[in-house]
Nucleic acid binder design. Structure first.
Lengths: 213, 213
DNA sequence: GTCTATATTAGGATAGAC
DNA sequence: GTCTATCCTAATATAGAC
């Protein structure tokens, strides 16, 4: 593998493990067993590395966000879809963990990240819309809009919030709880004919509690 | 006013305006028109300043969080109570804006902040409980628990999220939207006899939209 | 308590040999 | 492409006079 790619790969890992602020260019060079000079030959410091990592994340995340808009999800796909979103975020968690700090230091990323969040809101609105149109839930437009915004916020900050409350929660458990926290908000809107949803939800919750042990 | 207090006051202002990371001890000394040496006579750098600011915030916030547990809120007090919570956070926004970064650098604050969030969840649970017991809403225990957690998350991250999406939103507008985002979640649970809530909510929302212009 | 002047350090970055 | 050696800078911190 090319040095340039190795730098990206190990930087991401280091950032995720140690926190971006606690990783210096020299640290990155060390884990790769190359000299700092060599690192600077490929990237002029941490800034362009972070920039490139973000571009890669952005592309992948945008693809995932567009999927349910291009082709509405089947009812049963919703759960796994939220898993995928949370997993994408987990792969790139160093960025979310210190979101504001990083965006302050890399202004060119701020507007791009903002657009990603806006897309997140639109995707959530579309998902809720589909559930509404297929008669699975019954919800007013205003409440649907609020829910979409809320889902976007939770998708953005849930992993960080979890780490804050329980520093050694495992990622799978955290994601499971996060998905439950999103989906369970549908409960009061579920149409009369779709009560099997509530049974599924309870099962899901029990599974979660068992895993938490 | 004593120099020590002036340092705290102006540091908080600088941190809120510029972001804690962008403020050096020399900056603080400059706005106070004192020498860096003098600053270091009172506080051994930024760390103890931030620590003291947090202790002050913690005391006040804890007092506010305990209020509805000591003496349940009247129905009409709920709205203004959320305003107060958001305003407390706004006064101390530098801390929330770079939460993870700061907690990483000041580990002694991490556990104290965590306890504050846990208290936030308990207070939210108590508020929802009161609404349930007085018959204003009808909600299952599981859903109430989820809602309390969600409220705590929103209270913690809503202001940051707003700044992210709209960098020059004003604090009053942001708080207004935040309160609406919390309260409106009660809608599907409001008991049949309490429909005036929905009217109030709509008025509240319209007022918000007018202010946003 | 306050100042001036200076020291320390660590992160970030480059020049030039190989 | 890679290394070694070195440099620059900004934040942080202290010593000692007043």
């Amino acid at each position: 593998m090319k040095t340039k790619d190795r730098i990206l790969q190990y930087s991401l890992q280091l950032f995720n493990d140690e926190g971006e602020q606690n990783v210096t260019p020299v640290d990155i060079a060390n884990v790769l067993d190359i000299s700092p000079g060599n690192l600077y030959y490929h990237f002029k410091g941490k800034d362009p590395i972070i920039h490139q990592l973000f571009v890669d994340f952005e592309e992948e995340f945008r693809m995932v966000l567009n999927a349910p808009i291009d082709k509405p999800l089947e009812l049963s796909d919703n759960w796994v879809y939220f898993y995928i979103l949370f997993e994408e975020i987990a792969d790139f968690r160093f960025f979310y963990r210190n979101l504001q700090s990083i965006l302050e230091r890399y202004p060119e990323l701020e507007s791009r990240f903002r657009r990603l969040v806006e897309q997140k809101i639109k995707t959530m609105a579309s998902i809720i819309d589909t559930l509404n149109e297929t008669g699975f839930i019954v919800i007013s437009p205003v409440e649907a809009e609020q829910m979409a915004e809320r889902f976007a916020l939770q998708l953005t900050y849930w992993p960080t919030y979890q780490t804050l409350l329980d520093s050694d929660v495992s990622t799978p458990v955290s994601i499971h709880k996060g998905v439950y926290g999103l989906i369970s908000q549908l409960t009061p809107y579920v149409a009369d004919g779709a009560q099997e949803f509530l049974i599924l939800l309870t099962e899901f919750r029990d599974k979660m509690l068992r895993n938490a042990k």
